[in-house]
């Protein structure tokens, strides 16, 4: 433990700025993945263990699109749309058949999808890691704010993820589609009885969830290695977020993602050898004190 350094950091404006910017970026990228996971669980009741694979596919689609167009905007769009379409295909042909079934069956099918997608990227892009690199147009010196360092590209990432989060919140909270989705999460039978095509709603929700994971993969592709199996580590953290935030709660997922982002960021100063452990301790505390999670409905 290096708590003296942590105390010095939180009382130093430069350190606060640097660590907060890092925490926000880590947290918002995590939120994109976790929000899709929690959305799918909330509406479809499916624990999507293959969610990390859509993150990975988003990164690969972005890499491929960037290779052709050299446009980061097109790359991100390709990552989102590609992952969403892929999600749609898997939902229609595989996952829709196991809704409401035992979690072990869900685990089995999702594991199959993970293996299929991992092998597919190895066949198409090779087993070795790939690097997209930060586009030259976005490669600028970092902002220096009160002595703290905020990378230009991280600021861009934060802005994009914040816009996506706002659109998601607006879409779920203020639109007719959002109301239908929320109603379907509570009582799908009643929604169907009102003449709404629940199959279409489910497919749309899954595609949106996969698209959010794809967005995170595409956005992080320039600064992380793109490699088969990359979804596994992000999936573990996404499950921690989902548990802390409450299964099915988008707002809870946002709060939990930021908590984990800041834990990682400031933990690296104060308890660098226990950052991973701290995340699990937070999860355990939430499970003990508020089993439904920060934003979950009590009794859920």
């Amino acid at each position: 433990m290096e708590l003296t350094e942590l105390a010095e950091c939180v009382t130093s404006l430069s350190c606060l700025v640097t660590q907060s910017a890092a925490g926000l970026t880590i947290g918002m990228l995590l939120f994109l993945v976790a929000s899709g996971l929690t959305l799918i669980f909330g509406v479809l009741g499916l624990v999507n263990f293959a969610h990390g694979s859509f993150y990975m596919m988003g990164a690969y689609f972005a890499l491929a699109a960037y290779g052709v167009t050299e446009s980061f905007a097109v790359a991100v769009l390709a990552g989102i749309v590609g992952a969403a379409l892929l999600g749609l295909v898997f939902e229609r042909f595989l996952l829709s058949r196991i809704y409401g079934q035992d979690v072990l069956m869900q685990l089995l099918v999702c594991y199959g999808i993970i293996l299929i997608l991992d092998d597919a990227v190895k066949i198409i892009w090779g087993a070795d890691f790939r690097s997209m690199g930060v586009p030259d147009s976005l490669r600028h010196p970092p902002f220096i704010i009160a002595g703290g360092v905020v990378p230009y590209f991280y600021a861009i990432l934060f802005a994009i993820t914040a816009v996506i989060a706002a659109v998601l919140a607006f879409g779920m909270g203020r639109t007719r589609f959002g109301r239908i989705v929320r109603a379907a999460a509570i009582n799908p039978g009643m929604v169907g009885a009102l003449g709404i095509n629940t199959t279409l709603v489910y497919a749309s929700v899954f595609a949106i969830g996969a698209g959010l994971a794809g967005a995170a993969g595409a956005l992080s592709a320039p600064i992380r290695s793109v490699v088969a199996g990359a979804g596994v580590s992000i999936l573990i953290e996404s499950f921690i977020v989902t548990v802390i935030g409450g299964m099915g709660s988008i707002g809870g997922a946002l709060a939990a993602s930021l908590i984990l982002g800041f834990t990682r960021s400031f933990g690296s100063i104060g308890f660098p050898l226990f950052v991973e452990g701290a995340m699990f301790i937070i999860m355990a505390l939430v499970l003990i004190l508020r089993p439904s999670g920060l934003g979950g409905r009590r009794g859920s």
Binding site: E5, C9, C15, T18, Q19, A22, T25, I26, V149, Y154, S220, I223, R224, S225, A230, S233, I234, R264, S265, G267, S268, I269, P272, L273, V275, E276
Partner: peptide
């Protein structure tokens, strides 16, 4: 010093520690 785990996807926390 800072000790990222093997195959860690993101080094932001390690880099900010170095930066500090």
């Amino acid at each position: 010093d800072t000790w990222p785990r093997l195959f860690q996807p993101d080094y932001t926390e390690n880099i900010t520690r170095l930066s500090q």
